[in-house]
Write a protein that binds this DNA or RNA. Structure first.
Lengths: 218, 218, 218, 218
DNA sequence: AATGAATGAGCGTTCATTCAT
DNA sequence: GATGAATGAACGCTCATTCAT
């Protein structure tokens, strides 16, 4: 995961595609069962029923395999999160506060993260993050999505919306995954309530009257 | 970084203490310059101007060196964060909202995290986190601190205070480090404003009237 | 040499088999030239003209290489010793005393041990013996062989035959190897005579009249 | 144990002598409890309550310590074995066969070897023997002793006596230690009987009529 | 004499990667 | 393409030995 941006070659044949699939699936399994340190190329190739040499036919190096595993997880996440967010926004309608949409989004997120906690854990706890890497890109796209919605909901200028989006996206991402992985001593309903209060309160203030900070900005 | 709690021996002599210092400093440097994977014992020893054998007179294994580097960083953090938080609370006084205290704490946090961004980066991005490890313990102690203050400020029952503390601590931790490491396209003052709005709004609602969620709890 | 029974993988190809041969041969050479302590994996690999990694494709650990060297020596020994013993017994015929058979066996043994005295020396002098290890097993099988022959020759009960076999096997093994390794100041013919007298006298007494000890047993 | 003949310096002072004692005692203990591979200089020094540097004040290298441990064991053995042998010879008187003396010697030997089986085991199974080393010298001195007695009992020429002594000494040594360490499935009394028959039969033939080998010498 | 901190060559082993088949 | 044997640099760590104090 040394952020060199190594990508796999595009397979041209059906056979090749199947091989890539097996390798990625094996990479995922080995990653989950043996951890990042145990995810050696030889082990992944063996788990895929493929020779080490073949692995290198499709992936330039070890990181590329794990990057692909991560990419797929992140792509699936992004699709579900985007959809859940947009559905929630649509369902809540324009009139009310943001709380219903936030709450619905949170529920969807917790459902999603809870589905593969083992993979989530190894990604969050063991996979090195590269500064300009996939996770940053992922978050950046969610930022854009939320920014757009905020702007349509009457947030002030673009910069303010971006800042607000950056803030809530990271907050929600970190606390939902944190809840799933830490399993702190309170119920899921509690986190949902708290996070809804936290985020909806913030967004409502941001959207209605613009600047709020009663103690004056710095 | 296997949280088995391996600790270095207590040095008995000034000479020994100096050696430990050199090794820890070298560990820090190598960690920053070569990353977690590049932080081999031989490299750390060489950077410290010391033989590999000497390293093992003071540290039982490789993890112990990096754990010590992390511990020192975390201990310093905890001291500064705790102090900044308590000072901010005291300075703001009981009457006003929480915004001034939150803002002051955030400023202190950003100052602190901004001092060694390279080390912060490698810690956040590359060091494996173990579930019961030092970083969890660190966060747990900050949770306790904030919980206590919330209770003295009129939060409801202990459980509610704990949930609120868990929420704001993770939010503030993640967003302040995120700002320092991501360098998103807006100014520090903006994050401070946004985070102050986010957190103070949440806490004020939590402290004044108890449950707030206007859309009804789940 | 930790008798955990680690065995090498079965080579699948001719190429592989050749590699195993080279490694085992190199292990033998290094063992003989540098001694047990000098028989490091890297040295063996280098002597075999092979990388350390290759060694570990065929042997699970260091001990497995040396165990294989020892096994081959012992297997060859056992085959030759068994054959020589049985041939000698057959050639001597049932009527006469045991002396001719004993003498022929001794000659064969001294021939055999004298062929690779360097390897014999390092095995006897430097290789750790584990109580339940290969050497014990080797001796045990020879014990069985001799026991069987003694029983067919009219030894008393099984227990007596086992004790007699145990006695003569160890005696012969130790004195023949001792002669080869110590090179005491007398000729090979002398040892053969003395050992023949020692063993044949004992066996003849045991086989003819049963208990002999004229001073009375304890 | 590389047979380079390294010896410790002679201590000149009482203090020094005490230190040597502690080191040797610690060497013995560590050897027995941790085996040959576990008997590192640092461990021995620590067990002796002495610094590694001090150990090297009295012993030129690691082997010298273990050699000293072995020497003391061997010296004690030699004293006891010699005495037992000579006492047995004297007690049996000149008239009878050799059986009573052999039997008494065997009993004494088994008593002696049985006293510290742990140390005996590690010496026999793990300590490298050097060709011209202490154990050879030990056996050589016993050879001389037995040779002398055989000559006084009417053995033929010196060479014949030496060969007979060499033969019986190795036989008795190997089988008595073998019985103690192997614990084969029969009683001590059985080994005593068998060995007595083996050795006494041989010696009686050698002493009475000279050459015996009925099948003709080679 | 005595200490014990310091050394550094060397150990057994792994694994990302290559390349002859 | 696909294989899998082969590579070799590097790893974490040990320990006999030295030497400044």
């Amino acid at each position: 995961m040394s952020g060199r941006g190594a990508r796999r070659r595009e397979p041209r044949q059906e056979r090749s595609r199947a091989m890539v699939e097996r390798i990625v699936a094996a990479g995922r399994d080995v990653l989950v069962t043996r951890g990042y340190d145990g995810a050696s190329t030889n082990r992944i190739a063996a788990a895929a029923g493929v020779s080490p040499g073949s692995l290198y036919q499709y992936f330039p190096d070890k990181d590329a395999v794990l990057t692909e595993v991560l990419d797929r997880y992140l792509d699936a996440m992004e699709a579900r999160v985007s959809r859940a967010f947009l559905d929630s926004v649509a369902a809540a309608g324009p009139g009310a506060g943001t709380a219903p949409a936030v709450r619905a989004t949170l529920e969807a997120l917790l459902d999603t993260f809870g589905e593969e906690p083992d993979l989530l854990r190894v990604i969050v706890e063991q996979l090195p993050r590269s500064p300009g890497g996939r996770r940053a890109a992922f978050a950046g796209r969610i930022d854009d999505l939320v920014t757009t919605v905020l702007l349509t909901r009457g947030a002030g200028d673009t910069d303010a919306a971006r800042a607000a989006a950056w803030t809530v996206v990271r907050t929600v991402e970190h606390l939902t995954t944190g809840f799933v992985l830490e399993r702190p001593g309170f119920a899921r309903a509690v986190v949902v309530d708290e996070l809804t209060a936290l985020v909806a309160g913030y967004l409502d203030a941001r959207l209605s009257g613009g600047r709020v900070a009663s103690d004056g900005p710095s």
